[in-house]
């Protein structure tokens, strides 16, 4: 997972999800069990569907403190 596109471009993870959440909360707002679960499910799906090295999928979920 990641949340900083520029840094991810340098690190080049083999497969990754990019979230729009800030540092310190990669899974969004505290207590949102469904959102956290959804992101883990997204990760499992990405694992099975990403076939091109370096693929980064941006998740659209948004939340601000």
């Amino acid at each position: 997972m990641g949340n900083e596109p520029e840094r991810m471009a340098k690190i080049k993870p083999p497969r990754a999800l990019r979230v729009k959440f800030g540092r310190g909360s990669m899974f969004g707002e505290p207590g949102n069990v469904e959102r956290q679960r959804r992101i883990v499910m997204d990760a499992l799906e990405a694992l099975q569907t990403m076939v091109v090295p370096g693929t980064v999928r941006e998740l659209s979920y948004q939340w601000r403190r």
């Binding site: 310190g24 909360s25 899974f27 505290p30 883990v40």
Partner: peptide, 17 residues
């Protein structure tokens, strides 16, 4: 900032999920 993780550790470590 640890504030959110202290409220719910699953936001950085989703072991419960």
């Amino acid at each position: 900032d640890h504030t959110l993780a202290e409220q719910d550790i699953n936001v950085i470590f989703p072991l419960e999920r």
